[in-house]
Design a protein around this nucleic acid. Structure first.
Lengths: 228, 228
DNA sequence: CGAAATTTTGAGTAATCTCAACGTTAGTGG
DNA sequence: CCACTAACGTTGAGATTACTCAAAATTTCG
């Protein structure tokens, strides 16, 4: 059961869309599957970097460990996304650890494979550059939020990310697809503060919290809320 | 006086070291000088991106504007470094503004030039990837600091960045080469808090503050300080 | 169904910010 | 070159946001 067509998997990942059959084949020899169960570590912070990863299915948590078991969630990686590219190019140890959020499967591609693909296809190089640029921008937006926004604004911003901008529709329903303590960590908040902010916004009539389901009657009102 | 050999300037920038004479020439046609006086804006947040910049001399501040004139300093760019690469690859408006910290000169290179260089030299593509990776890591370290460290630790970390790690030497002198309010902003602190932390560390005997000169008698003691 | 993890709620605390005043440095123009 | 002014930096007192610790309620998962 463990024999799968790695080439076919690679071909369907966004990052490799533009590679030719031939180039995919070249990558295959540098690739191998990594399967893991929920909670399993993929690598620890400080481990030597062996290549980049592409998520086939399952989600992955990237986080920084800190004292007394606390951790800071840096990013949640979804299927189709890749991670650890930057580390690969620098040849440094991982600055974060990676862990399966649920049973999942990854492809690990060694640096030689990626570097080879860059040399054989400048379009691929551009894809990588675009991917890194995107990540950099995401991180910049995080920095902006941590620096300039308070707890309420960060929570509101997070929720609004998930409302599809359907013009004409005032309201929205956001389904939180990860645990609230992970969201809190992403937002640099304690779980307690995150919970309180949600309750607070609920009492202000801006949203309704039912477990992982957040109903926002009027997204514009939520977006424009000053905290009165 | 305004005619300068742009090619020669380009050739001496770290980013373009590996390009051939021919490739540099190709870049020149996409490049033009930008000179500016201290305090002058290079671009505003939201401006359309026209290319990437390389600093020839002078330093540049990248920052995010916020309400009532406050601003969050994201990075200080030194001569030889480039900025706005990520924005160029994404074709988005600038997420930060850029301003000369002193009289300076930049080279602005339009996207076509860079994309052409990527296509003609995969080594250059790798350089760009490494550069973006480095920036991403720097930003990750910032996030880590904002998230997991308190004011004292952030200040200590900042100072220790600037001590050359000369083994055998206990002490060090750090010359702050930018205004303290910029450092404070970089560290996500108010100028008041930054000042107080420095005084506090001074009273604890860990360092001595004389204007922009910080003397650290024992860097290991400063690094290991818990805040007692 | 039961144990473990997550989430909520409450009360008190601590770190950092805000506002205000004063001192100092640096840059400008006469 | 000096005097002046504006920007920068320090200090104090008080306010405030978000955190910590603790316990109860709820959900999730085996």
């Amino acid at each position: 059961m463990s024999h799968i067509d790695v080439g076919a998997l690679l071909k369907h990942q966004p990052l490799f869309q533009q590679l030719s059959e031939r180039q995919i084949l070249a990558l295959v020899s540098h690739t191998h599957e990594v399967r893991g169960a929920k909670g399993q570590m993929i690598f620890q912070r400080g481990d030597p970097c062996e290549g980049l990863f592409v998520v086939v299915y399952g989600r992955v948590k990237l986080a920084i460990p800190s004292q007394q078991g606390a951790e800071k969630v840096v990013e949640i990686i979804h299927p189709g996304q890749s991670f650890a590219e930057a580390v690969m190019f620098l040849g440094r140890p991982y600055p974060v650890f990676a862990q399966f959020l649920e049973d999942g499967m990854l492809l690990k591609i060694r640096a030689e494979g990626i570097l080879g693909a860059i040399d054989s296809d400048t379009g691929f190089a551009r894809s990588l550059l675009a991917g890194l640029s995107l990540r950099l921008h995401g991180m910049l937006r995080d920095v902006e939020r941590y620096s300039l926004e308070n707890a309420q604004q960060r929570v509101i911003g997070y929720l609004l990310q998930y409302v599809g901008d359907t013009p004409g529709e005032l309201g929205a329903v956001v389904e939180l697809d990860i645990h609230k303590n992970l969201i809190a960590s992403r937002l640099n908040l304690t779980p307690e503060t995150f919970s309180r902010v949600l309750q607070q916004l609920g009492k202000a009539g801006l949203l309704r919290v039912e477990g992982k389901t957040i109903t926002i009657p009027n997204t514009a009102a939520l977006a424009g809320w000053g905290g009165e």
